[in-house]
């Protein structure tokens, strides 16, 4: 599992990219949740879960993803998924949870998407991070 906080400007909020374990069962899901709990507890968390290495995902893993999303949304943040492996994609589709998440091809795209909806004035004046800044961080993680 890898973590990266991309902080380009003091005012920017970091996008955290986490690579998920290969087997996301009950034990691994709990372990993973414990790891990311501090990030979820932060103000407006922006998380990207990279599922490219996931080979086995079960109901507990899906439950954990939903828990993370609800926790993030409570704090006005969001959780996005990236690089879904075939196995993960099939399980998410089967459990009807694929429609609840924003899913991207790569973690770079997912990280970049967090800055898409910033007000134009903020982008132009540079008070907030540019579109590229979180993405660069994600690229470093990859």
């Amino acid at each position: 599992m890898e973590t990266n906080n991309s902080e380009k400007s003091p005012k920017s909020r970091p996008v955290v990219v986490k690579r998920m374990p290969e087997h996301l069962n009950l034990v691994q899901a709990r372990k993973f949740l414990k790891e990311i709990q501090p990030m979820l507890n932060s103000d407006r968390p922006q998380l990207v879960f990279d599922l490219s290495t996931v080979r086995q995902l079960d109901a507990a893993g899906v439950d954990m993803l939903l828990h993370c999303m609800s926790e993030a949304m409570k704090r006005d943040g969001d959780v996005k998924l990236a690089g879904l492996s075939a196995q993960a994609a099939v399980i998410l589709e089967m459990t009807r949870t694929d429609r609840l998440f924003e899913i991207y091809e790569t973690s770079t795209d997912a990280a970049r998407s967090f800055s898409f909806f910033l007000p134009n004035t903020m982008r132009q004046t540079g008070t907030m991070p540019t579109q590229a800044s979180p993405a660069q961080g994600a690229q470093q993680a990859a």
Binding site: A59, Q87, A89, I91
Partner: peptide, 15 residues
Amino acid sequence: HLHRNVEVEVADPKL
């Protein structure tokens, strides 16, 4: 899965 052309093992008996 026919559209994804992949065979996946589902270990969770709840699914």
